[in-house]
Amino acid sequence: MNAFFTALAFLTRLPVPVRMDSQDWNKSASYYPLVGLVIGVLLALSNEALSLLFPPLVRGVLVTAGWVFLTGGLHMDGLMDTTDGMGSNRDREQTLSIMKDSRVGAMGVLAGILLLGIKASTLAYLDPAFAPLLIAPVAARTGMTAAIVFFPYVREDGIGLGLREGLSPFRLGFALVSGLAVIVFMAGWWTLLVLAGTVLVIALIAWMVLRRLGGLTGDVYGCMAESVEAAILLLWLAAVGGPV
């Protein structure tokens, strides 16, 4: 269980009994979809409770704020750094340097504001929102785990190297099957829509980044996770929620 707790400690702010070591870190990515399930359950339950107290728009904003707090803004940071770098129109080395810079530029701030706005406003119109709130974090982290394996990693040192090495075919299969099982159970016939949205977002971001950098970074993984979550909520509202 230590590898799971390592993943939970890295991807969330939840207090866990974890002893960090390199072996558990390398294995931890195989549990990312299950961490997504933990996040999704907490968000869905919070959404249900808040719906008893607040109107839809306030509820959507509060759930989104809780989403950021629960994950420590980890993937949001990746989204903003990636947007700053890719939006700079600089060469490969300069782009990587911008993405590594801890300061956030105008492009990153705009991307963060827009994405949070999409999440909050979409949640305001999703009623009930239990299924999409549970599915979105799982799909995002399942897609992120697949991206770690199927796309090259660009940096010579970084968090992605150990994760990539630790994702053996068996562990990758476990991650994909566990994520897919949750999605199928919650989405039913809409599973194909969720999978199509996840694959499309991951592939599009990977294509744009690979053209410029030749590989992905940890920031890009975070950008993928945030983008998939927002895309799943939008697709669910459009296809399942119907016109409002």
Rank of each mutant, 00 (worst) to 15 (best):
E93C: 08
G87Q: 05
L126E: 07
V38K: 00
L180C: 07
A175T: 04
S22Y: 15
F174V: 09
L216R: 00
M208W: 15
L167Q: 00
G222Q: 09
R59C: 15
G117S: 08
V41F: 14
A124M: 07
L53M: 13
T83N: 06
L123G: 12
L200D: 02
V68S: 03
A147P: 01
E93A: 12
V149N: 03
V63M: 05
L110E: 08
T71E: 01
A231M: 14
L110K: 02
L235S: 12
F69C: 12
L126A: 05
A181E: 01
S22V: 10
L50T: 02
T6W: 10
V240F: 12
T122I: 12
L50C: 03
T83K: 05
I159C: 11
L172E: 01
V61H: 01
G197Y: 02
G241Q: 01
L14A: 10
W67K: 00
L163P: 04
V61W: 05
V199T: 08
D157A: 14
A187V: 01
V194R: 03
G162F: 02
L161E: 07
G117R: 05
D81I: 13
V177H: 00
W25Y: 15
R141H: 04
Y221C: 11
R90F: 14
G117E: 10
V68Q: 00
L57I: 07
T217I: 05
A111E: 09
T145N: 07
W207T: 10
L37K: 03
M80Q: 11
I39D: 00
L195C: 11
W25M: 13
I202Y: 09
